[in-house]
């Protein structure tokens, strides 16, 4: 995740609290989705940005996950996301992000 986005997410989590924040990812492949999710859950794996060593444990979803899709009106989904759903590997990106979600709770 780029350094600017890391700073923004850190700032928003301080302003609004972690419980009222959900991170939505639009990464096109599983690898990028997983790294992005990891950054906002466990911290920046590249140790380069504002989230290096910062375990925010935020709730994170890929925009193609069912939980997100059902929360969005059908016409908006169709206009904004529909084509990408045809193109991307929904299962792979969804499970990459779902696997990372809640990981910070595993560690004491």
């Amino acid at each position: 995740m780029d350094l600017q986005s890391q700073e923004s997410i850190l700032r928003l989590s301080e302003q609004h609290g972690k419980d009222d924040l959900i991170v939505l990812i639009g990464a096109p492949d599983a690898e990028a989705a997983e790294i992005t999710a990891e950054t906002v859950v466990l911290g920046d794996p590249a140790y380069a940005g504002a989230l290096a060593g910062v375990q925010l444990g935020l709730d994170v979803f890929h925009v193609l996950e069912d939980e997100v899709k059902t929360a969005i009106p059908d016409d908006v989904w169709e206009a904004q996301i529909g084509v990408m759903e045809d193109i991307l590997d929904t299962d792979a990106v969804s499970s990459a992000v779902a696997g990372m979600r809640g990981k910070s709770q595993d560690t004491p």
């Binding site: 096109p28 990028a32 790294i35 084509v83 193109i87």
Partner: peptide, 16 residues
């Protein structure tokens, strides 16, 4: 980690 840019574009064009 920047992916295959032309492939992504062609899949988008084909889907459209």
């Amino acid at each position: 980690g920047s992916g295959n840019v032309p492939e992504r574009n062609y899949r988008t064009i084909a889907a459209l």
